[in-house]
């Protein structure tokens, strides 16, 4: 059997998405708090603390600069945690996936449900940070509403990447590699905390290859009532990332579970 054949997509993923939603609803408050606390602390701590020392960063007050980064960072984190730890629990520990695969569901339906679910949860996290930023008066215009589809797309891209790692993981410990070797360096290279232009030229080139940079490059102008330059290119990179990573994650999951 060719494990890496194209995904077959259908709306059958919806009942599985609803299953995850029903679990989330029972634990919504601690879950939201967990997703929001970290990025909020970074945004407010660095934004006001460090920001008071800096005249302007990238032409913006530092708190506004970092708010856009925090929306993307929070979205990435939420998608990554869901696609790694939570999906792995359902696949390996609770054997929820086994139960679902005994019903008239294909693995394609199940992995798609995990993708869309993690992206939904991530979008909620990103949107919550956006709401806080708006309440603090950091959002210039309704153009910032474009951030809502952006955080969902960013969620899809990082959920898909996370699902690749989950499909390969022998245990929870494996995820540390992904954070240490990929997520953390990417956060520092993608213009979340400081402009990418501050980096050496070689690292700037690397930065341009990272999905988080593209999300940040879309998010920051939207905060300041500007249409992002080269928006379609950034969107295309995020879409391509989501599609390719999902395809690979599904192939790896098929190889792992249907052998």
């Amino acid at each position: 059997m060719n494990y890496f054949r194209p995904p077959s997509l259908s709306l059958r993923f919806v009942p599985v998405w609803r299953r995850n939603f029903l679990v989330w609803r029972k634990l919504a408050i601690p879950s939201l708090l967990g997703n929001l606390a970290d990025p909020m602390i970074y945004m407010l701590g660095f934004g006001y603390g460090l920001g008071s020392l800096l005249p302007e960063v990238g032409g913006l007050p530092y708190i506004t600069f970092i708010a856009a980064g925090a929306v993307c960072f929070s979205t990435m984190n939420a998608a990554t945690f869901e696609a790694l730890y939570s999906a792995f629990s359902r696949m390996q520990v609770q054997r929820t996936w086994d139960a679902i695969l005994n019903a008239p569901m294909a693995l394609d339906d199940l992995v798609l449900a995990e993708l869309v679910w993690a992206a939904s949860k991530a979008a909620l996290s990103g949107a919550a940070i956006l709401a806080v930023a708006a309440a603090l008066g950091l959002v210039a215009s309704p153009l910032a509403l474009w951030l809502l589809p952006l955080v969902f797309l960013t969620g899809l891209a990082f959920a898909a990447l996370g699902l690749i790692v989950t499909a390969l993981a022998p245990s929870y410990d494996f995820f540390m590699y992904y954070f240490t070797l990929f997520v953390t360096p990417m956060t520092l290279l993608s213009g979340v905390f400081f402009p990418v232009e501050q980096l050496p030229v070689a690292l700037q080139a690397l930065s341009a290859a990272l999905p988080l940079s593209h999300a940040v490059r879309l998010a920051r102008p939207l905060f300041s009532d500007e249409v992002p330059q080269g928006a379609w290119l950034h969107v295309a990179v995020l879409v391509a990332d989501a599609v390719a990573a999902f395809w690979l994650a599904l192939g790896l999951a098929r190889r792992r579970l249907l052998k």
Binding site: R12, P15, V16, R18, R19, L22, V23, K26, L27, Q94, R95, T96, D98, A99, I100, A103, P104, M105
Partner: peptide, 20 residues
């Protein structure tokens, strides 16, 4: 592989949804 986060009835309801 029952769903540990659900009640007895929710386990049946959610499983039924997988069958449409």
């Amino acid at each position: 592989n029952l769903d540990p986060d659900f009640t007895v009835a929710e386990n049946l309801l959610v499983y039924g949804r997988y069958f449409g």
